[in-house]
């Protein structure tokens, strides 16, 4: 079933009760940050105890801050674009770069998203040699295959007919109260 939860709504009672009545196995919540938090609070209130998959923009750390208690987000999962937790050791060098140049920025799910693509572009530029041209760069970008950025969960592959480079994404959820990148339900990467 599909229910609408409009932007700016402050109550998800009707939506939650309709979903609960349908007895779902799983809920996909395509919502913005505020509405996600309100829906999760109401889901807990009305005893809707099923896994909820949110959007990549509603990262776990900030969703937890918004709802204010771990119990409400314990069954909440999000697509995770990165190869590690936002505060994990694999992402630390990249988080440090961000902090160096933007010290007042807080780390969110969107903070490092362009770094993987930037690395692939740098690799292609290196391959073009000392005299890069537009054509050479495009050709090298199109030769990018299965490139591991160490930032993104998926590898980058481009071709002349496919510029949608990243096809894979991880899933993150709370394990023992901590946002964790998962390889299976409840199992950390």
């Amino acid at each position: 079933m599909e229910v609408a939860f409009e932007r700016g709504q402050t109550d998800a009672t009707a939506q939650t009760l309709r979903i609960k009545q349908a007895n779902p196995d799983f809920v996909i919540a395509c919502l913005y940050e505020a509405e996600t938090a309100i829906f999760l609070k109401d889901a807990k209130k009305f005893g809707l105890n099923v896994p909820v998959m949110g959007t990549a923009g509603t990262d776990l750390e900030n969703t937890l801050k918004r709802v204010g208690d771990l119990d409400t987000v314990s069954n909440y999962y999000v697509p995770h674009m990165y190869a590690d937790n936002l505060d994990g050791p694999r992402l630390k060098p990249y988080a440090d770069i961000l902090k160096k140049y933007y010290p007042s920025e807080s780390l969110t799910a969107f903070s490092l998203i362009s770094m993987g693509s930037a690395m692939a572009v740098v690799e292609a530029l290196k391959r073009t040699g000392r005299e890069p041209t537009r054509e050479k760069l495009i050709a090298e970008l199109d030769r990018t295959k299965d490139f591991d950025t160490h930032v993104l969960a998926g590898h980058i592959s481009w071709s002349p007919s496919d510029r949608d480079g990243v096809k894979d994404v991880a899933v993150a959820g709370f394990v023992k109260g901590k946002p964790t990148v998962l390889k299976a339900w409840g199992k950390p990467l």
């Binding site: 609408a4 939860f5 409009e6 709504q9 009707a14 939506q15 309709r18």
Partner: peptide, 15 residues
Amino acid sequence: AEQLVGGYVSTKLID
């Protein structure tokens, strides 16, 4: 009215 409309008609009409 909002909850009944949302519950029995459509959640799109709540607003």
